[in-house]
Each structure stands twice: as structure tokens, then as C-alpha cells.
Nucleic acid binder design. Structure first.
Lengths: 115, 115
DNA sequence: CAGAATCCTGTGTGATACTG
DNA sequence: CAGTATCACACAGGATTCTG
């Protein structure tokens, strides 16, 4: 396993946890999903909602999600262009996972590490 | 935010999801937790249960978990040495998150990407 | 057995500039 | 607006060797 498992041209791992990690890899991926859980978003809206993310990274994550069927990209042939991203039902299913993360984080006693 | 947010010498992010990502960073971290959810494990047992992980990486993850109060390390002064790792109550709380990941992964229709 | 030390690599990401 | 292109970097991780 390299830094990130190559899932592009191979099948997903057996273990569900490993599958999740293979698809939502990197620090930004899950945060992008978090934003999309609020509803359909445009490229700029996502970028603005995720302070620090570069267009390069945002594009990469969205493209990957699209490929895996987590996100649907809709481009409107207008000028200026308008593109909207929304979660598929599969992507919507990630809400439970993110909720679990959130719930767990609330159980952290201190602003760890309390040193 | 660098590649991975530096949480070592700063406070955790506000958002729970971001907190989770800051503490369980990298592809191996969550898998180590997955193994420990089955019970106390020795160093070698973890290494063997995680095919491909290097002692270097395993050590790093365990040390980080220890620092964050997710894992407790117990060294027995024997020869040969014996060291056991077990989850703290905080670490046990991660079970719900991993379960959610697993459940979600089961909803993936195909061995994505089907092609 | 349970690592520590050293060196190296892969890749997610950042910064900046540019385009249809 | 919604990206793409290019260069460069930080850090998780791998391989190997070695030790109390």
C-alpha cells in the first residue's frame, strides 16, 4: 500500500473501513462532502466555504467523487458558466459517517492534546 | 492548512469532522484503530494484522494516538519485552464511527469503479 | 520482541498564473 | 465563473539496518 491505495484501476478493498479510506482520502475530501451535505453547491461556493483549499485540490476531489459516484456534476451552458455539484444517494449516505465523527469529537474532553 | 494540519502544537479545529480528520490522519491510522477495537494487542500482533504496514509507521501512529488519549501503552518489564496497546474510553468511542464507515461501504453498488 | 535510526518515495496539497 | 497548467513542498509511509 503506497501512501494512498491506488483504487483508480483496481477493485476496492474488502473491508468497509478500508473502502471508506480509499475513497475519502486526504484531509480535504471529507470536508468537501461535509459542505455538499448542506445541499447543491457551485464551485466557488465550495471554495469559499473551505478556507485554504486551492482550486487545484477542489477540482481533484470533485473529479474523484464524480468518478466514484458520490457526486454529480451538472454544467449549464451559460455565459458565464455555471456548474453545480450535488451528492448522489450514495454520497448522501455519508451523512451518517460524518455525524458519527462529529459526535465522537464532542466526546473529546480537552482541546487535546492538553499537553 | 498544510498537507496535514499541524495539530501537535495547536488546538483542535472547531468542527467535529475536522477534528476527527486531524487526529486520524493518513490511511493507516483508522485501520490501526480498527484492529484495537477487537481488544488489546501487542506490537507484533498489530503489525501482522495490518499487512504492509512498516514498524516505522505503526510506531508513529501508536505514539500519536497515545498522545491524544486514544490509546494506552503498557510495557511489561520482562525479557523479552512485552508491550500492549489498548483503546481508552475515548478510543472505544470510535467504534461508532468505524461502524458507520462499514455500513456506508456496504451500500456501494459495484466494486467501484465498475470499469 | 519492540522498537529506533536513517534514507528515500509517493501524493495530496499550495501558490501562482492563465484561459474558454 | 470554473476551472487548467506548472512548479514546488510537506508529510505519511516504505525499506533497511540495528539494538536493548
Amino acid at each position: 500500500m503506497a501512501y494512498t491505495q491506488n483504487v483508480t484501476d483496481s477493485c476496492l478493498p474488502e473491508c468497509g473501513v478500508a473502502r471508506f479510506l480509499a475513497l475519502l482520502n486526504g484531509p480535504w475530501a471529507t470536508l468537501v462532502v461535509r459542505e455538499l451535505l448542506s445541499g447543491t453547491r457551485r464551485f466557488t461556493e465550495l471554495r469559499d466555504a473551505l478556507p485554504g483549499i486551492s482550486p487545484h485540490t477542489l477540482t481533484n476531489r470533485l473529479r474523484q467523487f464524480e468518478k466514484y459516484g458520490i457526486v454529480v456534476r451538472t454544467a449549464y451552458p451559460e455565459i458565464p458558466p455555471r456548474v453545480e455539484y450535488r451528492l448522489t444517494p450514495l454520497g448522501e449516505g455519508l451523512r451518517d459517517v460524518l455525524d458519527a465523527m462529529n459526535t465522537w469529537a464532542l466526546s473529546i474532553p480537552e482541546p487535546v492534546p492538553a499537553q
